[in-house]
């Protein structure tokens, strides 16, 4: 038997988690739509930026906001270099990006373990200690910030992709690089910029999650798996379906864990994926790019 207070608590928790999934997913969608690549090192890239901000704050005593900015910068740099040094040099056959970024995932994770150790570290608070509501339903500043970020990114992202010159350029560069070049779009520069910008989103998501959990070399793995599942369900070639899926699966999983026990969360998610595959198989089989996603 559960109370309405608990129901709201579980829903708000799921909403906050889903908001952060949406923030991270936006970066994945951006990179996929511009360069048709899946970056499996996305999670560790955010993890390293988070660790960098943690080190700057706790070891060097830098102010929180500054440490966070530098951490985001580290992630942006790694993401941009991934495109400049790796993805650009790959032969055009499909599948190389998957293999190479998986290798990068292993490398970055091992690097983090080497430099920062294998233990979890308690991250910056990022408003988790600021209560917003605290009677029967407990909401803190980080929850509110997460939802604000998620909604802002979802709506703002749609606006940018559909109502700005930048969005037009991104779509053209993705669809036909020669046409894009013929109208003055610097396709290669734009692609690297998209990779770099995706770093901002995974860094913000990773830091927010670290504030709610902790930071270690592996913490982003289950998070990014869930984000990729949302992208797969909604389709990385689309916008609103995957973004809404990000919110949806977090709420779904939150409720599944509450109703069926914490151990029910992962199986519940996979049951959902199987049901969707059975109901809408064409989504995942028709287009090569989405099948790969």
């Amino acid at each position: 038997m559960f109370s309405s207070a608990n129901a709201i608590q579980v829903t708000l928790g799921g909403l906050a988690t889903g908001s952060l999934y949406a923030v991270i997913l936006f970066g994945i969608i951006l990179v996929f739509q511009v360069s048709r690549s899946i970056n499996f090192a996305y999670g560790p890239t955010g993890m390293l930026g988070t660790f960098a901000s943690y080190a700057l704050y706790s070891e060097f005593g830098l102010p929180v906001w500054f440490a966070v900015l530098i951490g985001i910068g580290v992630t942006v740099l790694i993401a941009a270099l991934t495109d400049l040094l790796i993805i650009r040099r790959l032969p055009p056959q499909q599948g190389f990006d998957v293999v190479v970024t998986l290798g990068e995932l292993l490398f970055l994770t091992a690097l983090a373990q080497l430099v920062f150790g294998a233990s979890a570290q308690s991250y910056l608070k990022l408003l988790t200690d600021v209560p917003v509501l605290s009677r029967n339903i407990f909401v803190n500043g980080n929850d509110v910030l997460a939802v604000v970020l998620g909604v802002a990114v979802a709506i703002g992202g749609y606006f940018v992709l559909n109502s700005t010159s930048l969005g037009v350029s991104l779509r053209a560069a993705a669809a036909d690089p020669s046409v894009a070049q013929s109208v003055g779009i610097n396709v290669r520069g734009l692609r690297t910029a998209a990779w770099a910008v995706s770093g901002v989103f995974v860094a913000v998501g990773a830091m927010m999650f670290a504030a709610r959990l902790s930071v270690n070399a592996f913490y982003m793995t289950p998070i990014v798996i869930n984000v990729f599942i949302a992208g797969m369900i909604g389709g990385l070639d689309r916008y609103w379906p995957p973004m809404l899926s990000a919110f949806g699966i977090a709420l779904y999983q939150s409720w599944a864990m509450y109703l069926f026990g914490e151990a029910g969360g992962v199986p519940a998610l996979f049951i959902l994926v199987i049901v969707i595959l059975a109901a809408v198989p064409k989504r995942l089989l028709d287009e090569r790019h989405e099948a790969r996603a």
Binding site: R171, A175, D176, V179, A180, V183
Partner: peptide, 22 residues
């Protein structure tokens, strides 16, 4: 281009809009 090259997933209007990037 020698063969017509358009952004196949877009509308005619959005294809024209791409030209404004110049």
């Amino acid at each position: 281009f020698q063969t017509v090259r358009l952004l196949e997933g877009e509308t005619a209007f959005d294809n024209i809009l791409v030209g404004c990037e110049r």
